[in-house]
Computed example of a mutant assay.
Amino acid sequence: MAILQLSNGKVCGNSSEIVRELALFNVQLQHYSLEAPQHWADLLAEDVLPDLEKRQILELCDRQLESLKQETSYLWSDLLVFHPGSSQLHSISTYNRYHTHKAPEALYLLSGEAIFSFIELDGQQVQLLVQPGDYVQIAAGVEHWFSPTASLEFKAVRYFTTVDGWIPQYTELGELKKLR
């Protein structure tokens, strides 16, 4: 379950309180437990997944989270696999700066942990730690950053509504607020 750290240092672990706080940023949080096959845990523990296993994971998520696809008009999804030796790890630096997206950003965490940060009007940060089973949807145009935790390990499904929706649009305002 997610954990939210408010700008005053208060840590929230109560899901209804977290959902209420995130709504102020136009961010939705839900938790879904998938009914997974027995080998699921072993599969998610692997650093590298062949394409066949990636497709199986995506198909299972699509079947069990079909209501999300219908509610939010997601057209397709892909699987992010990060670990300390990952060739994709360099790409995470594109998301750990303040940015927005033209389309909603939606992510369902399968394993590991990751952090989202959002900016309050006074420039303070609110940080959300997401854990397995957490689904986060950030509305288009919401300023935020994203990063794995220190373990540098997570697997997540990203959901897309447009081809270029996930391309970050970096914000100067966020960079200035970060320097305060």
Rank of each mutant, 00 (worst) to 15 (best):
A2D: 08
L4H: 05
S7M: 10
G9D: 02
G9E: 08
S16H: 03
I18D: 06
I18A: 08
V19L: 00
F25V: 15
V27R: 05
Q28C: 05
Q30R: 11
Q30H: 07
Y32T: 08
Y32K: 11
A36D: 03
P37A: 15
A41R: 07
D42A: 12
L44G: 14
D47A: 10
L49F: 11
P50G: 12
P50L: 15
E53Y: 15
K54I: 14
K54P: 02
K54N: 09
R55Y: 07
Q56G: 01
Q56P: 00
I57P: 12
L58R: 13
E59T: 13
D62R: 13
Q64I: 06
L65H: 04
E66N: 00
E66R: 07
E66P: 00
E66T: 02
K69F: 01
Q70A: 10
E71H: 14
E71V: 12
S73M: 09
L75W: 09
W76F: 12
S77N: 12
D78F: 00
D78E: 10
L79G: 02
F82V: 00
H83S: 01
S87P: 05
Q88M: 11
H90R: 09
T94E: 13
T94I: 11
Y98G: 15
T100G: 06
H101T: 05
H101C: 06
A103K: 06
P104N: 10
P104Q: 12
S111Y: 13
G112F: 09
E113Q: 09
I115T: 10
S117C: 13
I119E: 12
L121D: 12
Q127F: 08
Q127L: 13
Q127W: 07
V130G: 02
V130N: 04
Q131C: 13
G133A: 05
Y135Q: 03
F146K: 05
S147G: 10
S147H: 04
P148D: 01
L152F: 04
F154I: 11
A156K: 06
V157P: 08
Y159T: 03
F160H: 04
F160N: 04
V163I: 01
I167M: 11
Q169N: 14
T171M: 12
T171S: 15
T171H: 06
E175D: 08
E175C: 09
E175G: 03
L176M: 11
K178Y: 14
L179A: 14
